[in-house]
Design a protein around this nucleic acid. Sequence first.
DNA 1: TGCACGATGAAC
DNA 2: TTCATCGTGCAC
Length: 188
Amino acid sequence: MKKIAMKKLPRSFYDQDTVLVARELLGKYLVHKDNGVKRVGRIVEVEAYLGPHDRAAHSARGLTERTKVMFGAPGHAYVYMIYGMYHCLNIVTEKKGHASAVLLRALEPVKNITGRAQGPGLICKALNIDKRLNGHDLLSASLYIAEPATTESFKIIRRPRVGVDYAGHWARRLLRFYIKGDPFISKP
DNA sequence: TGCACGATGAAC
DNA sequence: TTCATCGTGCAC
């Protein structure tokens, strides 16, 4: 098997502008060590959620029991259940209290991925991620994001976010990013 | 204490 | 286009 040299992203990476973090996450590797099984996927599609002012973001309703992780320190996982049947994985960004995050929408299977990971619900299903990992530190040994040693070049496409039509003008902002031409994105 | 509704996915 | 399915947030 081909071994990929990777470097775990530091806390300072997440403590940056959310749109910048979202774009930089493309091409990085999400790693979940699940009870001894190392599952790896390459991030090919993300969405940015810009804190309490963003009406499409959960944090727009203020600090609640569900969203308190979003209001916490950067570099943590915000995992929530949607429609009673799927989990979505977000990466908390910027300073504590800023309440911004990046939603991971699609992964390219790399290692120990069962089925597809094209869509936020399917990512969590494929990597066996659920609410137990809500608030989990992404600098831990069991869940983290790493970058490959060699940088690759690709073009980034910007689109409106999915499923947030209720959010007024925020629904039209181009806060969804994906790798142009990648076969593993969830929607064109 | 009750209830309307979603940052979805799959079938029809 | 419709449905499965339930935690969360807010109204009472």
